[in-house]
Design a protein around this nucleic acid. Sequence first.
DNA 1: TGTGTACTTTAGCATTCGCTTAAATACAAC
DNA 2: GTTGTATTTAAGCGAATGCTAAAGTACACA
Lengths: 123, 123
Amino acid sequence: MNPPPCIRVFADTDHIQQCRQRLTQVAPALSSLASVLALAGNEVRLQMLFLLADEQLCVCDLADVLQMTVSAVSQHLRKLKDGGVVAARKVGQTVFYTLNAEHLPVLEPLLARLTTTQPEPTP
Amino acid sequence: MNPPPCIRVFADTDHIQQCRQRLTQVAPALSSLASVLALAGNEVRLQMLFLLADEQLCVCDLADVLQMTVSAVSQHLRKLKDGGVVAARKVGQTVFYTLNAEHLPVLEPLLARLTTTQPEPTP
DNA sequence: TGTGTACTTTAGCATTCGCTTAAATACAAC
DNA sequence: GTTGTATTTAAGCGAATGCTAAAGTACACA
């Protein structure tokens, strides 16, 4: 049931155990971070987040800007909302999306890099 | 060939165009960032990066720690290497992996959050 | 009340992902 | 050379992803 994954000569068991412990200590935070990064790791969604960092937008606006189907945009937004990355605010029949505060500490510095990175001069 | 994606009453064409321009300005950086986040957005790979941030490790070590097949680990590492996130250094017949400098500015603050986030007191 | 607009949801489908298994490569030691 | 160890690669497969197309929901307004 549990074949030894690696039968190398010097398997420093203490070291392995220590690494495992470090992982379990950060496990919840790491899992949460991974799911946020997975959401932001899609080019379309990252574009959305970049735009939403500047101003709230409705589904229709995003569809126009990204030149995508309203349905496709809506499905991306649902994922982002389910992940707690964005929040929806309904005004009349249009739904405005904004960045959610919960994961801003992670997203803000990432998005900030996009506007501050100057094109590197070829050395 | 190009049906209007959204026939809403008030489509602020100038605004849409302005958003599109902001996107094209950051397009290369955004694309690069998205691919790094996509790599880090996998829980197993994020664990690897977390460990590699502390010390260099070989494939076998990672397989032991993560309790995964050497093959599975190797395939993850190849993706990370192809994305420029990690670098390989061969010593004898073992291959040590380290974080690559290229994307450290993105990864470092993310990984730092894992060790500094204190468990929030239930309010 | 009906009509239209903004959005969501569902089903379907091609593609990608992440794993397993097995074979292949590289190299150290005997 | 042969053997053994560390790693990579290839093939295959189930599951997840991201889109389209079509139907469904919610609400404003005449």
